[in-house]
Design a protein around this nucleic acid. Structure first.
Length: 194
DNA sequence: GGAGTGATGACA
DNA sequence: GTCATCACTCCA
């Protein structure tokens, strides 16, 4: 199995490309000397100033400033008084965009994901790297196009009929591994209802 | 369907 | 300084 760490160039691609390409990649977390990896199954794109669903649409603020920086950095924010959300900054410096990682295999929901992986605001603004203890790897998993569903994003109806209905959410429905069929092992697919 | 929770940003 | 809002989760 190849393990290829995704570099800055990957995250500098257009936000929608990154959001879609992240499905099937592995989110790797090192904490307290232990490393875990989970396949990403759900993402959402937040793309530029004009995106009314994005934190950046009213311009730069202390909270969202990392979105204006280089791709491949971590944007974590706290919401609803209890949940951290994990985003990965995309695009080039100066263009505010990010991908929200909503779910990984076995863990649905962005708040539950950050809780399970011990992700909090201390990671905010850091680059994805071994040093920060959080990065993304391509482990050779192949995802067929037809198995990635596109839907409107969750929880941003305030963005209005146009931006609220943009299909900027990518959800994985099935996985094919490049080294053969599942050798008898039962695949556990957890997926939130659509 | 509704409570809980507190940082954030808009406004004054 | 106040206040409404929120890229959510859990329990009913």
């Amino acid at each position: 199995m190849t393990k290829q760490k995704l570099l800055k160039e990957f995250f500098e691609q257009p936000t929608l490309t990154v959001a879609k390409s992240l499905i099937g990649k592995y989110l790797v977390r090192t904490i307290g000397g232990k490393t875990t990896a989970y396949m990403i199954t759900e993402t959402e794109a937040y793309d530029g100033f004009h995106d009314k669903g994005s934190h950046a649409h009213r311009g730069e603020t202390p909270r969202n400033s990392v979105m204006f920086g280089d791709g491949g950095h971590i944007y974590v924010y706290f919401t609803y008084g209890m949940h951290y959300m994990l985003n990965i900054v995309t695009g080039k410096h100066g263009f505010p965009a990010a991908v929200l990682v909503r779910a990984v295999e076995g863990i649905s929901g962005p708040g539950r994901l950050t809780k399970a992986l011990g992700i909090d605001k201390t990671l905010n603004t850091l680059p994805l790297s071994r040093k920060s203890g959080l990065w993304v790897e391509d482990r050779g998993t192949k995802i067929e196009k037809k198995n990635i569903k596109r839907t409107p994003r969750i929880g941003i109806r305030y963005a209005g009929p146009v931006w609220g209905n943009k299909k900027y959410r990518f959800v994985h429905s099935k996985v094919l591994e490049n080294f053969g069929m599942n050798s008898g092992r039962k695949r556990k697919v957890q997926q939130r209802a659509l």
